[in-house]
């Protein structure tokens, strides 16, 4: 892999993300009010110390990555986790508007498709999706009495 391409891999992307996160964090540290004259007793002390330490450690990790000749192969695929992330994001977005019942059936169905569970048997597929949805409805709404979001007053 060429040097430029290696910089785009996760080995560099994650530390780079932490670097950005730490910079935002450090910038926000100076917006904290209530810092008195005694620096180490104030609310900024620990965040500043943590940020400085974080920069030093990220530098160590990045330098090590650059010195490595090759990028280790990551086993497994990346599309399936991405689909799980998208399905989960959609579930959270639709959880209140659609209610627990419908949104969960859709979410479970999406996961069944992603994990290739009974996709060739539509009746079993639908039955299992309903069973999973109903099981956790009974657990949370019936046993623990939690008010789950509803669609038109139904589950």
């Amino acid at each position: 892999m060429t040097g430029r391409h290696r910089l785009l891999t996760m080995e560099f992307a994650l530390p780079a993300f932490f670097l950005v996160l730490t910079t935002i964090y450090l910038a926000q540290t100076f917006a904290i009010r209530g810092q008195s004259g005694a620096f180490w007793q104030g609310p900024r002390a620990m965040p500043i110390a943590a940020s400085v330490l974080m920069y030093a450690l990220l530098l160590v990790v990045l330098v090590r990555q650059v010195r490595q000749d090759t990028t280790p192969d990551q086993p497994g695929e990346i599309l399936r986790p991405l689909l799980v992330m998208l399905a989960t994001g959609a579930y959270i977005f639709l959880f209140q508007p659609l209610g627990y019942g419908l949104s969960t059936v859709l979410f479970v169905s999406a996961l069944f498709v992603i994990f290739e569970f009974r996709t060739a048997q539509p009746a079993a597929f639908a039955l299992y999706a309903l069973i999973v949805t109903a099981t956790f409805y009974i657990l949370y709404a019936v046993i623990f009495g939690v008010r789950l979001p509803q669609l038109f007053g139904v589950i």
């Binding site: 959880f95 979410f107 290739e116 009974r118 999973v132 956790f136």
Partner: peptide, 18 residues
Amino acid sequence: RGLLYSGIAVVALVGSYV
């Protein structure tokens, strides 16, 4: 595993809601 992970995903997310 498909059934198992789907169930775990629902427990985890609805659990964090309740």
